[in-house]
Write a protein that binds this DNA or RNA. Sequence first.
DNA 1: ATGCATCGCGCG
DNA 2: AAAGCGCGCGATGCAT
Length: 609
Amino acid sequence: MDLITADFETYYSKDYSLSKMTTEEYIRDPQFEVVGVSVKVNNGAPEWASGTMGQIKKYLQGFNWSGSMMLAHNTRFDGAIMSWHFGIQPKALADTMHMARALHGVEASASLKAVAERYGVGVKGTEVVRAMGKRRLDFTDEELSTYGDYCINDVNLTFKLFTKMVKKFPKKELKLIDATLRMFTDPILVLDAGRLHAHLAAVKERKEMLLTEAGIGDKKDLMSNGKFALMLNMLGVTPPMKISPATGKEAFAFAKNDEAFKALLEHDDDRVQSLVAARLGTKSTLEETRTQRFIDIASRGALPVPVRYYAAHTGRWGGDDKINLQNLPSRGPNAKSLKKAILAPEGHTIIEADSAQIEARVLAWLAGQEDLVSAFTNREDVYKKMASTIYGVPVDEVTKDQRFVGKTTILGAGYGMGAVKFQAQLQGFGFEMPLDEARRVINIYREANWNISQLWRGAQNMLRYMAQGDRLDFGRVGVLQVDPSNKAIILPSGLPMFYHGLFAVEEEKGPQCYYKVRRGDNKIYGGKVVENVCQGIARCIIGEQMILIGKRYRVVLTVHDSIVCCVPDAEVAEARQYVEDCMRWTPEWAAGLPVDCESGVAKSYGECG
DNA sequence: ATGCATCGCGCG
DNA sequence: AAAGCGCGCGATGCAT
């Protein structure tokens, strides 16, 4: 397979630019114009081509894309141009920006300039600054030639970076970069514009009603904390306060989970009730702006899915391009409205498969908590089992409430949560538990899952060693590789999870560890490392499963523990079986880890659940 | 005007 | 000894 490196230079102006618009919007805009493109086949000399969009298309179609891997730096951009404007679908897509993010951590700059400097492969030029506001025909021949040199330099840098990075880059992860990019560059999901318009109208109407009932003329009085506090004062209510965890200063407690604020929804004065309800129901504008974005995309075509490879510290994917498809509402007042507007194309069906309790299973397995692993393997009700231990009753006599406590314990206490937070979490779910009882439950969890508690201690010790540059392994043998010289834990994918600049300091409470993030220093401790690695390992498993599914069907989205794909109507039954089989499969390095899944099938994403 | 920190909230 | 965690978006409020 040939490797073709490509880089487009495109028209932009003050307002028509990637800093003002989403990538999808920019590339699909009528103003879009290629000024020129550089193409380099394998290690050959790059060519620079400029001309009309028709000429560029003809030029590009002269390459063997269907037998080649296309490489760029930020291929979501160049790959989308290749696909949407020139109808070219390379055999595979590669991206040095994504590779850099995975290899060097999400905190480090992944810009071509920064990565080229890091690898010492050359320096990025600056000619592009004179291109602002200029159409292709506005450039003189000399300017175009200079621009071409700049572009050729970028292509050479990108190619050199790839040859260096690919040596240490896992092959499966290259496949995942390809799969991720393809969700965007080769969109097939369709948006239901009618449903979106109806939803937007409904959201607006609901908000109007809330404002009318509260007698609010100007919405600004609700949005600003200060103004809202004044309105409460006018009704004789002292605004509830809390201490900001970020600054330690006093702040208004106006969030939907602030107990004192929630209590105002039951206030004797109806006007207070309406006011608080209006604030809670209208404060966030996300649903409206996002629905509008969907409507706008629908007017331009299919839905390119923007998910970012290796966005999280733990390797998980993240949202991108101003629409986070990983947090579409599935509960609450807007439950599934947007998801239901995402449709399979004509003749196709959506399959969504969710991995069952993947992180809890990984935790038990990594810790060697064999009784819990067996319970998962034997498909026992682990939440009931936990409740049975907590309440000292036989498993088949566990009540609904007791099971709920068992579930919250299994899902919450596995990473070191203390009694106070556990009690607060239960209360958030509307379940009252005295602090003493919360302490008792947390202690029972830690005793019953001794290996998991040991894993936290192991991780804590590993941190102390790593801070000094020493290596100490932890967890199930052979799963994680501790790399103290790079302050990283190598996940089973072969990719690192960094604790950049890890250091330990003596504090009143004892020694504490921190690592460097963009905002400053991030506290890290055993339980948190365990959470991070469980999330990272779960991501490795989902990744491998995604590759398997992708061999037969179009994967269109992933949301951490779920994989969404699109299959022909005629194959739905066998496809569903195949997808479930894939999600019950584990890689060789995860032998003994019991995984399971649930799946749903529908014409829309929202109806799969 | 623009950037940054913070908060709130959606998902997992 | 104890400590749940991971994102992205949009808004406000403040600094530049």
